[in-house]
């Protein structure tokens, strides 16, 4: 009898919660797979890695990862994570969010987290639609894609998320597709070991809603499409990384820099002005039980 071996990803997952709610062919699971590989390869203490999600299909990632995890409110994963990180600076805080959650309802938090350089790794699975609620248009749905609330085709200009992140001050900005699993895992690993507001956009298929409604075939076709249309341009000017409907997908690491995080900047300012009077924040401890 052959020895039964556990899948290497399993130890990162809450197996008692499987199967996931994600549809067959959905790209979110692929990104989680890459993320677990990144966790394996980086030398982080996994007890100190916390995952925070908002609402939506991608918002469910937190619940499946066997880490400290928080499934928050729609659009507010970033400010939750900001509070978590400031209150417990020892944690590595990862926000996992979808395009609607992050750039529509959470758009303001996104630009401000990048501006103040909150020390957070933010992964955005961009599938161009609100999956959980049935395939509505999002700020990334390109013209003329059909969504349930744009039955005659989307027509609003879209956000170029890497550019939004970069111009708001993110210190690490990358984009991959779910076809680029090795590159994505490596990018996640690299980003985990950096500091500051780090942003990775992952272009991913939503076969049930986005692909089907636009008659774009199955997830497998989409992988072929990603392969054909992707162009790796490390260091590309993010202004040139905008996406349009079915056109070229510029991928790669666009920004990789370092500037003081919010906490570093705050500590520096306080030390400069207050000198010895400044009492830096101490990690919370467990007080004795009553």
């Amino acid at each position: 009898m052959s020895e039964q071996r556990e899948h290497p990803v399993n130890k990162f997952l809450r197996m008692d919660r499987m199967p996931s709610i994600w549809c067959p062919g959905c790209g979110i699971g692929t990104t989680v797979n890459c993320f677990t590989r990144a966790l394996t390869e980086c030398d982080k203490d996994l007890d100190k890695v916390a995952v925070v999600s908002g609402i939506g299909c991608t918002g469910r990632v937190a619940g499946y990862l066997n880490l400290d995890s928080f499934h928050t409110t729609h659009g507010r994963a970033l400010p939750f994570a900001t509070g978590l990180k400031v209150a417990n600076p020892e944690l590595d805080v990862v926000v996992y969010s979808g395009d609607g959650d992050l750039s529509a309802i959470g758009g303001n938090h996104f630009i401000h987290a990048a501006r103040r350089n909150s020390d957070i790794l933010c992964i955005c699975v961009n599938n161009f639609t609100y999956g959980m609620t049935g395939g509505q248009v999002t700020p990334t749905t390109p013209e003329p894609a059909i969504a349930s609330t744009t039955p005659y085709g989307a027509f609003e200009p879209t956000f170029n998320l890497p550019h939004l992140a970069a111009s708001s001050g993110a210190t690490y900005v990358a984009r991959w597709t779910t076809f680029h699993v090795r590159q994505l895992a490596r990018s996640m690993r690299d980003a985990l070991s950096k500091k500051g507001f780090r942003f990775i956009e992952v272009i991913a298929p939503c076969p049930t809603l986005y692909l089907r409604r636009n008659r774009l075939g199955e997830a497998l076709h989409e992988m072929r499409f990603y392969k054909e249309k992707s162009v790796i341009k490390h260091g590309a000017d993010t202004r040139e990384a905008a996406l349009d409907y079915r056109g070229q997908i510029v991928v790669g690491t666009f920004v990789d820099t370092r500037r003081p995080t919010w906490l570093e900047a705050m500590n520096k300012r306080m030390s400069t002005v207050l000198g010895e009077k400044f009492v830096p924040y101490a990690l919370p401890t467990r007080e004795p039980k009553v």
Binding site: P79, V86, A87, M270, Y281, P284
Partner: peptide
């Protein structure tokens, strides 16, 4: 800053009201 606390002014009340919840779960 004189007693070891951290204050952050956020972009709106939506952010402030959940950042404090994050802070509590951070300990």
């Amino acid at each position: 800053p004189l007693v070891g606390g951290t204050f952050i002014q956020l972009e709106d009340e939506l952010a402030a009201s959940i950042a404090v919840i994050g802070g509590v779960w951070g300990g």
